[in-house]
Design a protein around this nucleic acid. Structure first.
Lengths: 307, 307
DNA sequence: CCCGCCCATAACCGCAGATTATTACGTCAT
DNA sequence: ATGACGTAATAATCTGCGGTTATGGGCGGG
C-alpha cells in the first residue's frame, strides 16, 4: 500500500477528461484509442485507491476527489512543461532567434516558465539558453553574444541596460538543531562574518552579494567552510548540519516551509536584492526578446522581501 | 523532434546521481541494477538531446546543463510528492489519527505540502483529508468530525478558534481581449456588481467573500453569468472569453504571469482576505494536529497582497 | 601488480500498455 | 417502438520498454 507514483500520461488524461467531459474525446486528444484511455484511467484509480470520475452513459465528470487530484496534477504537469521548455532552450544552441543566458537562481525558478509562455504565444521562435552565473551572463550580454541576460548581481555591470524582473532576499539558514536557532536576538553581521560559511563559487550573484555585505563591516571575514557550485548542494549541506549558509530565499522557500532548515535573522543589514534582465547598451531588445521581457516583467514574481 | 516528456523515475535517477556522485550508488538507492540505471540515463539524455552527466571512471558528476535539468526535475518531483501526500490523505477515510477538511483553494496549493512535511517527520501518523468548500469545512470542524479545517471565509464562524496560515487577495480577471483590459482607470465596485460574472457555487469562500463585498454597495447585483464548482473550470472559462470572474490571486497567478488572463483593478474595496486554520472551541489541537498547525503557520506562504 | 570501484555492452525476458473488434448501455429523433 | 449515435467496458493479441544477469574495459590505490 506504499503507493507507486502514477505516470504523467495518466495525469494528463485526467485533466483532459475534466476539460472535455468525455473519456473518448480525451483519448482522441491524446492520440490513443478509447479503450486505452478507459483502461489507463481505471488503472490510475486503482493505483491511487480513489474513485476519480463518475462515468455516465453521456459523459464523465470528475468526483470531488477527482477534482482535487486534477488540480494537483495540473501543478505537476505545469512543472514538467517548464522543464521541457528549459530543455528545449538548452538544446537549441544555434540557429536560434533569441539567445538567453541566466544565473542559476533565475534559471531554476523563472526562466523556463517565461520561455514556456513565450512559446505558447509564438511557437515558432527558437530560444536558446545558457545557464551560468551572474558574472558570465552579464559578460555575454555585454559582448553581444546573447540578446538578454538574467542576473542577480547587486549592481548592474557597466555597459548594460537593465529592467527589474523580480525581487529576492538573502537569508541565513542553518539546520534545525543548530545553536543559532535557539537565539532570542538576531545575530550581528560581525558574528556572521567571523563564522565559516558554506558559500557558492566566486562569480555567482549570491556569493558576490554576500561579500559586498560583509565588506561593509570592519571584520576580517572567515575562510569559507565549504565551496559548492550549486544551490541544491548547498541546501543539502545545510540540512545535513554542515554549517550555516547564505542563500536566496527563493531557493530555500520549500525547505523553510517544511522545516528542513531554519532562518536566522540578521541585524541591521539589507539583504534584499533585485533580479534583473540585462542587455547591451545600444541594442534595445526587439521581437522575441521584447516579448519575453514583457512576459517577465508583466507580473513580478511574488517574493517575500519583508523582514 | 517534438520531445517526449521523460518519466519521473529517470528524473529521480538524475537527482540521485547528483546527490551521490555515482551512477551505481544511485541505482542501488532506487533498488535497480547498475546497468538498468546506466541505460535509463543514456535514454534520458537521448530523449532530451543533452549531455547531462560527465562519466569518469571514478564517478559521475553533472554537467552544467545537467544541474539545470536536475533543479527543474526537483520541482516536478516535489509537486508529485505533494500529490501523493494529498492522495494518501484523501484515501484514508477512517482509522486515522488526524482528520482534516479544506476548502478547494487551500487544498490545491498548500495542504498537500503541509501533509507531506508532516509525514516526513512522523511517518506513522495517518492523515485524512476531505476537500469541500469553506462552509462545509467549518461545519465539520464545529461538529467535531475533524481535527482541523482550513477555510478562506471572510469571517470565522461562531464556535470556532482560528489561526492564520496565509493571506490571499481576490482579483477581477478577464480574457486578454476583454474591453476592460483597455480601461485606464480602475472599475468601480458598482459597475462590477451590475456585471454578470462567472462565480463559484454558494458556500465557497470565494463566492461568500465576493457577495460580502458587493453587499456593501447600494446596487442590485446582477445575476451570475455562469456558476461553476471548480476554480480550474473558472480559469478556463475566463481565458476562453466567457466573461469576467472574481478569483483568488493564488489560483490565477500562473495564468496572469503567462498572459492567459488579465487582472482588472477595482477601486476602493479591500479584496484581501485571510486563510485560516479552524478548530472547535474547547478542543485545542494536540499531537499531530498541533504539529501540522506548526508547519502551516511556521512560514506563511508568500502572497502578493499589495495592490 | 592486482584488486577495487566505476561504467558500458550484450543477451534475454516479462509485463505494462497499446491496438482492433466487440458488447453493452442511454438518449434522442423518427 | 426502434434504430442511430453517443457514451464506456471487455476480450484477445502483440509490441517494446525496462528490468535482469553476465561480462568486459578504464583508472586509481594499497
Amino acid at each position: 500500500m506504499g503507493g507507486t507514483p502514477p505516470d504523467l500520461e495518466s495525469l494528463r488524461l485526467l485533466t483532459l477528461v475534466a476539460e472535455l467531459g468525455s473519456l473518448g474525446q480525451a483519448a482522441e486528444r491524446m492520440r490513443i484509442s478509447q479503450p486505452a484511455a478507459s483502461k489507463r484511467l481505471t488503472m490510475l484509480e486503482r493505483r491511487l485507491g480513489l474513485t476519480l470520475v463518475d462515468r455516465s452513459s453521456r459523459g464523465s465528470a470528475l468526483t470531488t476527489e477527482g477534482k482535487a487530484v486534477c488540480q494537483w496534477s495540473d501543478r505537476v504537469l505545469s512543472e514538467m512543461e517548464s522543464l521541457m521548455a528549459g530543455v528545449a532552450a538548452l538544446r537549441a544552441d544555434q540557429d536560434d532567434d533569441l539567445r538567453l543566458a541566466s544565473s542559476m537562481t533565475l534559471a531554476e525558478h523563472f526562466v523556463p516558465r517565461w520561455i514556456g509562455a513565450l512559446r505558447q504565444r509564438s511557437p515558432d521562435v527558437r530560444v536558446s539558453l545558457r545557464v551560468t552565473n551572474s558574472e558570465q551572463a552579464a559578460a555575454l550580454a555585454a559582448g553581444g553574444q546573447i540578446g538578454v541576460g538574467f542576473i542577480e548581481a547587486p549592481t548592474v555591470p557597466p555597459g548594460l541596460c537593465s529592467r527589474q524582473v523580480g525581487a529576492d532576499r538573502l537569508v541565513v539558514v542553518v539546520a534545525p538543531d543548530h545553536p543559532w536557532v535557539r537565539r532570542r536576538r538576531p545575530i550581528e553581521p560581525a558574528e556572521l562574518a567571523r563564522t565559516p560559511l558554506i558559500v557558492r563559487e566566486p562569480g555567482s550573484g549570491t556569493r558576490e552579494t554576500l561579500e559586498r555585505i560583509l565588506a561593509g563591516i570592519d571584520v576580517e571575514p572567515a575562510r569559507p567552510l565549504m565551496v559548492l557550485d550549486s544551490n541544491a548542494a548547498m541546501r543539502a549541506a545545510v540540512a545535513a548540519g554542515v554549517g550555516p549558509a547564505v542563500l536566496s530565499v527563493i531557493t530555500v522557500r520549500e525547505d523553510l516551509a517544511e522545516g528542513r532548515v531554519r532562518e536566522v535573522p540578521v541585524a541591521g543589514v539589507n539583504l534584499n536584492r533585485r533580479l534583473r534582465a540585462v542587455w547591451a547598451r545600444g541594442s534595445r531588445p526587439a521581437g522575441a526578446a521584447e516579448l519575453l521581457l514583457g512576459i517577465a516583467s508583466q507580473r513580478l514574481p511574488d517574493v517575500d522581501t519583508a523582514a
